[in-house]
Design a protein around this nucleic acid. Structure first.
Lengths: 235, 235
DNA sequence: TTTCTTAAATTGGTTAACCAGATTGGTTTT
DNA sequence: AAAACCAATCTGGTTAACCAATTTAAGAAA
């Protein structure tokens, strides 16, 4: 059993450096929204790194909506001003992997909203998808198997029915990490899972009845143990 | 003035196809959490696409936490089960660019939380950063200039002080789009911006006093016009 | 048989050359 | 002078060859 100093992913560090250089370039040249960046070739030459490294850095900044590259044309600064651009890049460079506590805290916040919206807005098709996810979860639990995945898919079905694509996306991004940690720390033991079936069913019924307040209450009940867990785990 | 059928970015479509094929492969081979995918070369050969296309698709899936590639070793399936993996990839493939309405709705949700948390948890340094952002905003407005960026940076400073890295990241991802739309639709006209100064100051004071309830109330006041706007704009 | 050594094969990352479409600037045409 | 044309150039995207670190398995040593 060797003690590892965390590898401190070297590649991430390189990419952050490139992103930082792109920001410096934009500032130095006073590029404004819609302006074109130099070609990938010139940037890579300029920075002394490979073109694919530059491309990856650009892809990351595209993901955050700060750049937009058009084929056979160029890479362009997004329609936000330089102040916001600088502030956001600084924040992106400083970003660290979210801690589990903040993940759970955020999940609760998001889901208390999605469940209300789902009750208000769900279509018949979306309701059916939620029901199918519910049944899949119940079946898995009754057969005595671990059902963390089916649990989360039920919640994702609700997020999808909320009609808010942004929250839906956010739920998607935090779910893998949630599943990993739940499995690792055995947050959802089998005895708890049995209770979970009824709690899920209550949530489903509230959404079916289109009662947002009730849905939120039932979700709160469902999160009760999660609340405690969230505020007791060690950082 | 030509009417454009939206270009329907071809590259995105190709990447989605590759992601779909990766999912199919994982299912066909019944790969489980931690299992290794074939090398990028074999995948690209298998799919009949370039290796860099495969790499980009993998990078996207890495971003969502579904894959993890290790240098000189291989690409591995994340520690989530096949059910969740399939569900999430399906959702990712179906993701569309968030509509403005959902962005604003989500922003309000997130910020009513960050402002409470910031009041509870902010350090002296973070309080000072919020104050600086406030002053920068006020100065810009008083000089009669557009201050959408400084406005959002004030809110981002609060998000940073919330101590919740997940919400902070989410705020970062939606901010550029918010700025773009606010600028485009002139949501924050100059006369409104003047009122905004005092509203910002009220929020700042509540955070300074470490009064989460007051902070939330002041943020609600600040969002009042946004509420209306959010529920009146055309889709 | 088990353990250690070591060299060949495999890996993700990098580099450089190539492609087709977009851009550009000078030329021709009107 | 202004519009239309066209070829040279530049662009992001793709491909293929290369690199160094890692993994592997075959063989030597115990």
């Amino acid at each position: 059993m060797k003690i590892e100093i965390l590898p401190k992913n070297e590649n991430d560090a390189i990419q952050k450096e490139i992103i930082s250089k792109i920001r410096d370039y934009i500032n130095y040249k006073n590029l404004e929204p819609g302006d074109k960046l130099p070609s990938e070739r010139k940037l890579s030459e300029n920075f002394g790194v490979s073109r694919s490294s530059v491309r990856e850095a650009i892809q990351t900044l595209e993901f955050y909506g700060l750049l937009k590259s058009k084929p056979q044309s160029g890479t362009f600064v997004a329609d936000i001003g330089s102040v916001a651009l600088n502030g956001m890049i600084s924040d992106i460079l400083r970003l660290e992997k979210p801690d589990f506590k903040s993940l759970v805290e955020t999940r609760i916040l998001l889901e208390l909203k999605t469940v209300r919206l789902a009750a208000l807005r769900r279509s018949k098709e979306e309701l059916k998808e939620i029901e199918e996810a519910l049944e899949a979860y119940a079946t898995k639990v009754m057969s005595g198997e671990d059902a963390v995945q089916e649990d989360l898919l039920f919640h994702l079905a609700i997020a999808k029915a909320s009609g808010n694509s942004t929250i839906n996306t956010f739920m998607l991004t935090i779910t893998p990490e949630i599943i990993t940690n739940f499995t690792k720390y055995h947050v959802c033991d089998k005895n708890i899972a049995f209770i979970g079936i009824q709690e899920h069913r209550d949530i489903y019924e509230a959404i079916k009845k289109q009662d947002p307040q009730l849905a939120k209450e039932k979700m709160k009940v469902h999160f009760k143990m999660l609340y405690q867990y969230c505020y007791n785990i060690k950082d």
